[in-house]
Design a protein around this nucleic acid. Structure first.
Lengths: 316, 316
DNA sequence: CCACGCTATGAGCAATAGCTCAGACGCCCC
DNA sequence: GGGGCGTCTGAGCTATTGCTCATAGCGTGG
């Protein structure tokens, strides 16, 4: 008898669910139809959900993205995760994630209370600041996590911090240092000088860090852009480097290396594990290992990527 | 640009729908996530529904029944329709519909204000009254639509009205007449005599009529039960009879025949079209044509049947 | 057969969702 | 470039929903 009661209760739950979700009746109407109190009707609808008698299917590419984002967030315990649909026309396009990064910056900068935004390297980050909608927020601060002078002494061709400051009227703190110093000692000296210490202090109080993630292979952006030489790159690869964030190379488990160029790097080192909101932005098959490692090691606690990359990260 | 806006709006709608239905967030939370007002979030969720970006799937046999019931209700403009799951073990079982009929009677009789229930013929109706939960309602009235004396002069073996009255303490009005009189004149005389006129008057004020539907073929219940002879049955079939309700034979379009046994029938004729709630209860492949005709002709404005029968009716 | 504990129920309240309206914004046509 | 039109937005109100709690019914075990 118990079984039969259960069965008929589930039948009613299904009926209630049907009337509610498919026919669009209110629970009050359903209660009248099924000759029960409204409270019971509500319980039946809940039961229908709890017993998974009813399932939702979202017929839209976004659905897959949302699910991937939820899984990444869960798996790596992220505070923020966005997955944009892969554009079949241009699978490597950073446009999609740049848009989302810009959106993130927009909403952060929209705040009336002063915020500090720290920016790292990466094409997505660069593209993002270009898309930020101009807004007047003179009390915000934009700070660079990475030196903007390359090996040859010229300023980096793309001044991300300056551009974002332009669009917001915020104070900005570029890092007037070469990416790499010639020796560890020299680095240690430089990072203690007043203007640099000031930048570090601001960066330490950042509310949001938005960083690119670079892979450490022959096409590593740090090399392509001329910040590290081929020999330096190869050395880091020998040491196990699989990715870099603001120049800081890390291995497959997301551990920062304590050797090679990392000893001469002027960039502000990542917190490990990240406790301020630190969003990594990257797409592409080549970066999957680097992103996964950064997530595992807690170098970042947020991610903006595309569908294909997200899927690849989860499949590892 | 418009297209792109539309697209991104639908993307957001999908996102909102996902967050709402799948992730189970409130619209307030979604509004914060998507950086819009709560009102807009609500609009996005609505849009998601309106654009059918999201679909509900009810994983339960009841779902199909609910849909069939809704279609029947729509198609034949019914005030009430129930479809019970076909029992694969006993495809012809009236148990399921009897249960629902009993339920219908229960809820009607539960009323404190006096109601009048009129009963017709049929195994489902008989089984239904057996399942009615006893309740004390002396002010209700139960009235028979059909004579309960068969051709041989004995009372019908099953006194439906009496049984229901037993269970409710209601006054009851059986129809103390043979099912058929020997001639039209005689019928006309009989139905005018005082006790019968009284029954007719009560029946005319019925709040609910619950009737069986019989097919008019060689296995017609009216014949099997001995109310009409083989010859009478065949005559009605020749005249186009396809079904009967309380003995009143009708053709494939649900039009009452004006000849044959219909002229000698003592049963209270159906309203055409039914305006009081008149529920037909019947299952089985043999009855599909009869049920469909009764629905088309407006002889009934409610139906209780099973899944297989419902499907067959809709497929005609 | 009664007492106990369990589950299920309905009232009432707090939270959530849906809707209407007035206003703003952008767009198009003149 | 300006006026008018249509669409979109957010505030605020009302309906609906989810939940909590006290109570009643029911089965179980003494």
């Amino acid at each position: 008898m118990a079984a039969e009661n259960d069965k008929s209760r589930l039948d009613d739950a299904a009926r209630a669910g049907w009337l509610y979700f498919i026919a669009g009746h209110t629970q009050d109407e359903i209660a009248k139809m099924l000759q029960v109190s409204r409270a019971s009707a509500q319980r039946l609808v809940s039961l229908c959900l709890a017993e998974r008698l009813i399932t939702f299917r979202l017929e839209h590419p976004i659905a897959a993205c949302m699910e991937l984002a939820a899984r990444l967030k869960e798996r790596f315990n992220l505070v923020h995760c966005e997955v944009v649909p892969a554009d079949p026309a241009a699978p490597q396009a950073t446009a999609g994630i740049a848009e989302r990064c810009a959106n993130l910056l927009d909403s952060t900068l929209r705040s009336e209370t002063p915020v500090i935004v720290a920016l790292g390297t990466g094409r997505a980050v660069r593209a993002a600041v270009e898309r930020v909608t101009p807004i007047d927020r003179p009390n915000h601060q934009i700070v660079s996590l990475v030196g903007n002078i390359s090996a040859d002494g010229s300023a980096s061709f793309y001044d991300t911090v300056g551009r974002l400051a332009d669009r917001t009227g915020a104070r900005h703190y570029p890092m007037p240092l070469p990416f790499l110093m010639s020796s560890e000692d020299e680095r240690n000296k430089m990072v203690r000088i007043e203007p640099i210490a000031k930048v570090k202090a601001v960066a330490a109080r950042a509310d949001l860090r938005l960083v690119g993630i670079g892979q450490m292979d022959q096409k590593a952006q740090v090399h392509v852009d001329g910040f590290v030489t081929r020999d330096e790159l190869f050395e880091m690869m020998r040491l196990g480097a699989i990715g870099e964030i603001t120049g800081w190379a890390y291995d497959a488990k997301g551990r920062l290396l304590k050797a090679g160029t990392n000893k001469r790097l002027t960039s502000i080192p990542p917190e490990v594990p990240a406790k301020t909101t630190t969003i990594g932005a990257a797409v592409g098959a080549a970066k999957v290992a680097a992103i996964a490692a950064a997530l595992s090691g807690g170098l970042i606690n947020g991610l903006i990527t595309d569908e294909a990359t997200a899927r690849a990260i989860l499949e590892r």
